[in-house]
């Protein structure tokens, strides 16, 4: 692979331009993916951050989370049989601060568990994004459906639901605001959650799709990301193909002096691998750095799973583009390749 490396060293400008294009295209894809994931987190971080398990809705809710009401007796029995289980409800609402300014929130109330914030009646724990609105620990908040007051006990990071900051409140307070005694959902963490005949069960992914607007929003975002990935992938493949086709005269000379076809392939693959790896490393680093400098309030969430998956896709399409051009080099007679290179 010495010859491949020597060419890269001697033709720095050419490979730098190619690397820059790959860097820009992959950087764009990572940023758009981060923004799409960020929007997804903004919509359902509360649910997405829960461990794998099973969600249960009442059968008459017809898989619609908002319509679900778990019978109190059933709930009591399930919680008794499954000590890790928790019953919870999420409803959109608002709180008023001391200056009577309204803040939209998603109220969350749950039975005692390690999965959600445990809040006493009269207390409220808010998503930290509300700090930017001037709310501080110790502030008193009100709600026009609630006879008492909420004292802010603290803040939690990245707890959003339906693009609104989450507000954890006590169960009794929740029941008063929404005039219901039943909880909407039961969640049992773990892979071996029981089947409960009285309730419909959902995996984490299925439950996310039961949230109104979530699946429609995700489909649109995923469409954007995958469309971008396909376009980027095609660009990758075309660039590697073009680079090697431009060098067909050189490959012709190397074939003429008797270089093995596999050595030519190795040269093509090595250059593709080095350029792609360096460009991807740079765009991954800058994309991750972007999350620290992204403006406050901009939902940006780029997971390493997404990074590795996209990187694998780019590597694969780069490899395909390079291989297709390699096949062309393989099939051409040395003299024809030299003559094409001279044109």
């Amino acid at each position: 692979m010495k010859i491949a490396w020597k060419e890269m060293k001697k033709s720095k400008a050419k490979f730098l331009i190619l690397g820059s294009i790959i860097f820009l295209v992959s950087f764009l894809t990572f940023i758009i993916s981060g923004l799409a994931n960020g929007l997804s987190q903004d919509n359902a971080a509360l649910i997405k951050d829960l461990p794998d398990g099973q969600f249960y809705l009442s059968k008459d809710a017809d898989s619609t989370y908002n319509l679900s009401k778990i019978d109190e007796e059933i709930q009591k029995q399930i919680l008794m049989d499954n000590p890790n289980a928790t019953a919870f409800s999420v409803q959109m609402g608002f709180v008023n601060d001391a200056e009577d300014k309204q803040h939209s929130v998603a109220f969350v109330a749950s039975t005692e568990s390690g999965l959600f914030e445990n809040v006493k009646d009269g207390e409220i724990v808010l998503d930290s994004s509300l700090k930017e609105n001037g709310i501080e620990v110790g502030d008193v908040l009100t709600n026009n459906q609630f006879s008492g007051e909420f004292i802010v006990k603290g803040f939690v990071d990245q707890q959003k639901y339906s693009h609104a900051p989450v507000a954890f409140i006590g169960m009794t307070n929740y029941q008063e605001i929404y005039r219901v005694m039943e909880m909407q959902t039961i969640f049992i963490p773990g892979e071996e959650a029981p089947t409960l005949s009285a309730l419909d069960s959902f995996s984490n992914k299925e439950f996310l799709n039961a949230i109104p607007s979530y699946s429609a929003e995700q489909m649109s975002l995923n469409m954007i990301v995958w469309f971008l990935v396909i376009i980027s992938g095609m660009l990758f493949a075309i660039f590697f193909y073009m680079m090697n086709v431009q060098k067909i005269g050189l490959y012709g000379i190397l074939k003429a002096i008797g270089m093995r076809t596999i050595s030519l392939f190795k040269m093509i693959w090595y250059q593709m691998l080095v350029i792609t790896a360096i460009s991807l490393a740079l765009s991954i680093t800058l994309s991750k750095a972007f999350s620290f400098v992204a403006p406050e309030g901009m939902p940006f969430h780029l997971t390493m799973d997404t990074v590795w998956m996209l990187s694998a896709v780019f590597m694969a399409v780069g490899f395909i583009g390079a291989t297709i051009s390699g096949i062309q080099v393989k099939n051409i007679e040395p003299l024809q390749a030299i003559q094409q290179g001279e044109m």
Partner: peptide, 9 residues
Amino acid sequence: FQSSHLVPF
């Protein structure tokens, strides 16, 4: 070859 065709790098 007529025009030497050395490997340029």
